[in-house]
Amino acid sequence: MIFRRFTVGGYPINGYLIADSETKIGVFIDPGGFNDEIDAYVSHFKIQLRHIFFTHGHWDHTEGLAEFSKHYAVQCYGGQGEVRAVSNVLHGGEPIMVGPLRFTAISTPGHTPGGMSYYCHDRVFTGDALFCGSVGGTESQDDRERQLEHVRKNIFTLPDDTLVFPAHGPMTTVAAEKYYNPFF
């Protein structure tokens, strides 16, 4: 698997590029911005970037979509009501094939109503639903409880060694968060 984290956007977030090392078919998760580093990496590894996944629709996660669309013919995936450009609306539980790589959409609402995480192989991309030692902000206590419940049910049930890649801050693991994140 080809995998790279990029810092993207004016309000910097972590954007992630994942591609199959044989077919080179790939996906970019959270296109908060586009830059020469991404362009060079895609060219160097001859990646066929065909998919964009959104964890949610906040502008810092979507602002680079126009640039990505200019450079690559991409299909967009995301939760209901999050991003207008999404043609593949997800509700959680759907498998998504990126070449031979099998991703699973995981519903993690709370930070936003249609928040989505994505699981593939030994790693999960949690957007703003789960950070290292923290969680994303919510607008109400109900949303907060919904967020914690979905992370407990859908993320903390993944294998402990699963690598967690949030949209902000350092990466972590399911075990570190399940046992030591003070918000749970």
Partner: peptide
């Protein structure tokens, strides 16, 4: 930067003159 030492154990260990940003030592 943007790295994690989570769930590690440090004994009789000294850190001097580091510069760290967005690094995790969770748990």
């Amino acid at each position: 930067e943007l790295s994690t030492f989570g769930l590690s154990v440090f004994e009789n260990t000294t850190w001097r003159g580091s510069r760290m940003s967005e690094v995790s030592f969770i748990g």
